[in-house]
Design a protein around this nucleic acid. Structure first.
Length: 265
DNA sequence: ATGCCTGCGGTTCGCAGA
C-alpha cells in the first residue's frame, strides 16, 4: 500500500497539477494539507473520478486538510482531541488534522497533519505551534496504546536537524528551526515512532520544500519538513519511501513536494 | 535590512506562508 502526503498550497489553484500527479502516481491513500477551502468547495468530483473516497476537514482561506483513499475508510476524525492552551485556538479552531482507518485487507490508520508554522517566534503564533505539538503528542500516545499500524504524516513545519536544510544558518531565527520545535519533534518520535526517511536511509539533501522566492528551487535552497512517523506495527511493514522532487518542476507547482510511503499489503 | 513569490479575499493591498 502506498500512502502519500502533500502540502498542495490550495487544491483549487493547483487542481490540474494535483490531478496530473495523482493520475501518474496512483497512491492508494493521499493526505493533502493547505487545501485552503471549505468542504463544499473541495473539487470532489474531479478527484472521485480517479477512484478515491474523500474525507475533508476544510477551512476558508487558510489551512484545511483532506484524506483520499482508494479503499473504504472508517473511524474518521477531524481535528485533534484536546484543547489548545496558548489561547489562540479558543477564538478560532484551525483545520489541521484528519485521520481515518484505511479498510484494506490489512488495515492502516492514517493521520494527516498540518502543523502550525509558528512565525514570528516572539508572538502567540509560536506558542500555538508548541501547544499544537503537545496535543499531537498526547494523541500519538493514545494511538500507540492501540498497538495498531499507523502513520502520522504531513507538513510538520520543523527542520529537525541541520542536515535537513541546505543552509541551516538561514533558519536560525525561524520557528521551524527553534530548539523548542526540534525538541517537540524528537519527543514525538521518542514515544516509539519511526521516521520513514530514516528507515529508508534517505540521504541528506532529500528536501521537501523550496520557497517560491529568491530562486530557492533553482539554487536547491530547500528544507525537509514533510514526514511520515510510523508506529512499530507500521514500521514492521515498511518497504520504502520516495520523495517526489520532480513535482517541484511541474507547471504551477506547490512549494512542497509529495512524500510517498510504501507498506506491505 | 528588506523583499524576493504565490494564493486568498475582496478589491488593487494586506495577510500568511516557511
Amino acid at each position: 500500500m502506498r500512502i502519500a502526503t502533500w502540502n498542495v498550497n490550495s487544491v483549487n489553484a493547483r487542481l490540474p497539477t494535483v490531478l496530473a500527479w495523482l493520475e501518474a502516481t496512483q497512491p492508494d491513500v493521499c493526505c493533502f494539507q493547505e487545501i485552503k477551502c471549505l468542504d463544499e468547495k473541495f473539487p470532489r468530483e474531479a478527484i472521485e473520478s480517479l477512484g478515491y473516497n474523500i474525507e475533508v476537514h476544510g477551512q476558508k482561506t487558510y489551512n484545511g486538510v483532506a484524506l483520499l483513499s482508494k479503499y473504504p475508510v472508517s473511524d474518521v476524525r477531524r481535528g485533534l482531541p484536546g484543547t489548545d492552551t496558548s489561547g489562540v485556538e479558543a477564538e478560532f479552531e484551525q483545520a489541521r488534522y484528519i485521520e481515518a482507518v484505511i479498510e484494506a485487507p490489512r488495515p492502516v490508520r492514517v493521520g494527516g497533519l498540518y502543523l502550525p508554522n509558528g512565525n514570528p517566534i516572539d508572538t502567540a503564533k509560536f506558542a500555538y505551534k508548541l501547544s499544537w505539538f503537545d496535543r499531537l503528542q498526547a494523541h500519538a500516545r493514545d494511538l500507540l496504546a492501540l498497538e495498531e499500524p499507523f502513520t502520522l504524516c504531513g507538513d510538520y513545519n520543523v527542520i529537525p536537524t541541520p542536515e535537513d536544510a541546505k543552509n541551516p544558518a538561514a533558519w536560525v531565527t525561524d520557528a521551524l528551526f527553534q530548539p523548542e520545535s526540534r525538541a517537540a519533534f524528537r519527543a514525538l518520535k521518542n514515544l516509539g515512532l519511526s521516521e520513514a526517511g530514516e528507515l529508508g536511509r534517505q540521504p541528506p539533501g532529500t528536501y521537501t520544500f523550496w520557497d517560491y522566492q529568491a530562486g530557492a528551487w533553482q539554487r536547491d535552497h530547500g528544507i525537509r519538513i514533510d514526514f511520515h512517523l510510523l508506529s512499530p506495527q507500521a514500521a514492521d511493514r515498511f518497504i520504502g519511501i520516495e520523495t517526489h522532487r520532480d513535482a517541484r518542476d511541474m507547471d504551477k507547482p506547490s512549494d512542497h513536494v509529495p512524500v510517498v510511503l510504501e507498506l506491505e499489503d
